[in-house]
Computed example of a mutant assay.
Amino acid sequence: MRRQPIRTQRMLCLERVDVHPVWTWLALIGVVIAVALALFGLPPVDLHGPLHRLGIMDPLCGATRSWYLTTQGQLREAIRYNPAAPIILGATVVACARAAVGWATGRWVTVRVSRRISLPHMVVLVIAVAALEINQQLHAELLMAPWRR
């Protein structure tokens, strides 16, 4: 009996159209925000929710300061405020580079992932978000302090 080969789908492929336009536009908006932070600094308005004032940090706490510090080349300080934010900013820049190549060549690099998240991947995701939340809560004093630059 001859075995049938396992069919696998390529994870990276080229498309004639952007099959992820929402992510492309979100990335472009993110880069505009990063450039604005680099040029003008942090916004003069308080972006914190009510739980922040009670000392309860969320995983995104410190992300604006972290993006600003990343754009200023202060990666170590940026990671203190939010270790996930520089990674998200890097992914944003990569997505914008993908868009630039796609618009210039008419070929879009597409990352294909399963719509179903496997249990091991879900566990890793939950652990990562929980670790980020714990990290942010441990740095609540830093994150609640007024910005002094």
Rank of each mutant, 00 (worst) to 15 (best):
R80P: 01
A95P: 05
L143M: 02
I87D: 10
P44E: 13
V19Q: 15
R107P: 07
I79L: 15
H48W: 10
A27K: 04
S118C: 01
L125M: 14
W25E: 04
P59N: 06
R148M: 05
G55V: 02
R107N: 12
R148V: 07
H139D: 05
A38Q: 04
G73T: 09
D58G: 05
R7E: 14
T92D: 10
E77Y: 00
R80V: 06
E133V: 01
R98P: 05
L51P: 03
G90F: 10
A91D: 08
A85G: 02
V17N: 09
A130G: 07
V35E: 04
H121D: 13
L143G: 00
L28C: 13
R115S: 10
V113T: 15
P86N: 09
L119R: 12
L89V: 01
W147R: 03
P44G: 11
R112G: 08
Y68K: 00
G55T: 03
V17G: 04
L42S: 05
M1Y: 13
Q9G: 00
R16E: 15
E141T: 08
P50S: 07
V124M: 10
G102K: 00
Q4F: 09
L51G: 01
A100S: 10
F40L: 14
Q9M: 02
T70M: 04
L26F: 15
T71E: 12
A27Q: 09
H121S: 13
L47A: 14
D46C: 06
P86V: 08
V17D: 11
T8D: 10
L89A: 04
A85H: 02
R98Q: 11
V17Y: 08
E15M: 05
S114A: 14
V129Y: 04
C61I: 00
L75W: 12
P59Y: 03
L69Y: 02
G49I: 02
R148H: 09
A104E: 07
G90N: 06
H48Y: 11
L138S: 04
P21F: 12
G30R: 02
C96I: 07
G102Q: 00
A128E: 03
L42E: 09
R98Y: 08
R7P: 03
